[in-house]
Write a protein that binds this DNA or RNA. Structure first.
Lengths: 211, 211
DNA sequence: TTTTAATTGTTGCAAATGCAACAATTAAAT
DNA sequence: ATTTAATTGTTGCATTTGCAACAATTAAAA
């Protein structure tokens, strides 16, 4: 994922953040945050630590929208935070910079580092967009098996390897694929039995030819 | 959807496009296009006409990724065109401008209209991002009924009205929701019978309180 | 107008899936 | 080391869904 401060020197970085009136915040581990600033559009940047953007619907089903580490960018639009049902959860002690979206987007200046920052944001949201599209590819598959195989195909394609290391646990994977965990577990068993895959913890090896 | 040339005068627009080496193309109705330029990242802008970005998978299932009219922006990253499985279909005679993504993103200039264009692109992709997130919200619902209700909720929210006008036909709606058309038809019947909705052609009226 | 094509509606049935309830295993905390 | 919590695995069963096959309706073309 592109660094939001790519091609901006530390000195210009400071200037930029000052210019855009950055808000620097620190939060402890396992805390729901930002419930207070839902009224306006923001851009948030994770400077250190890890956060999850999650959603809990009226049935109590939890969905992980995304997980962000250092240099991770989020915010209204970038992630749909305006919707009251979304929450941000710190997984570790976390430092966050908050910017005002409208302020950032409508700032008038000829400073090069500002325009570089906008370009970086464009690249970042582009990258996120691709990920969203991939998730949609998966979710539009009609069976659990096809969802799993599509997920494997995408993950395998990232590094061009038949060996996949799951970036989250099986419970969270089921959430990501929007399927019942138990049903997924059953389907994984079938895929193992039929010789399609090999599973060792979070390491999955694909034993079939790419389709 | 934001105009990609917002806040850029027609004169500067011409300069910008010349500078970025635009490629102007015209296509007749109902034509699969752009199969030729999959090798590099592009930004496409629909100047007139209508196109659909579609996907046909190995099972023959067609998915409409998005439909774009005048000022619609698409391209690698914006829409996952590098993937060989995607196609662009003109629904009318269509004029398209093609730009080179890397060229656009890495161009070096202090011209204001260029930076305005980048900002516009950022806004556009932001808007698309929101739409993708909404679709994911729908697709993560586990039953056809909940998918329909979530879709209604989002559409209703757009104009704050209980009356929805479907932007596409029922066949395409089923594609969008990634469900079987017949099963959707059945579920819509139940929703009508239970007094939740009223359907007249593409006009759907919600008869229940927002949840 | 007549014919043809596209869209929408209907329904039986087999297959897939969510759910529930619980066991087994692994990780974390004390 | 022991206890507690979290994650993973398993399975019967009711429900939901996709699929197929076809009828009805609407739109487009000849």
């Amino acid at each position: 994922m592109t660094d939001p401060f790519k091609n901006i020197s530390p000195k210009n970085c400071e200037k930029l953040l000052y210019m855009l009136e950055v808000n620097r915040l620190t939060f402890p581990k396992n805390k729901l945050i930002l419930n207070n600033i839902r009224e306006k559009n923001i851009i948030g940047i994770v400077m250190s630590g890890v956060i999850q953007i999650i959603k809990i619907d009226y049935n109590g089903n939890r969905t992980i929208i995304e997980e962000l580490a250092e240099n991770g960018v989020f915010g209204t639009n970038f992630s749909p935070l305006l919707n009251i049902e979304y929450d941000i959860l710190t997984k570790e002690e976390t430092d966050i910079y908050i910017l005002d979206y409208e302020e950032v987007i409508s700032f008038q200046t000829d400073k090069e580092y500002y325009h570089q920052f906008i370009k970086n944001l464009l690249e970042i949201i582009n990258e996120k967009f691709i990920e969203k599209n991939q998730r949609i590819e998966i979710l539009t598959k009609k069976t659990i098996r096809n969802k799993l195989l599509e997920y494997f195909r995408i993950e395998s394609g990232k590094y061009g390897s038949r060996v996949i290391y799951l970036p989250f646990n099986f419970t969270d994977l089921a959430d990501y694929l929007a399927i019942d965990r138990c049903a997924m577990s059953r389907e994984l068993k079938y895929l193992k039995e039929e010789g399609f895959i090999e599973v060792k913890g979070k390491k999955i090896t694909l034993l079939y030819d790419k389709y």
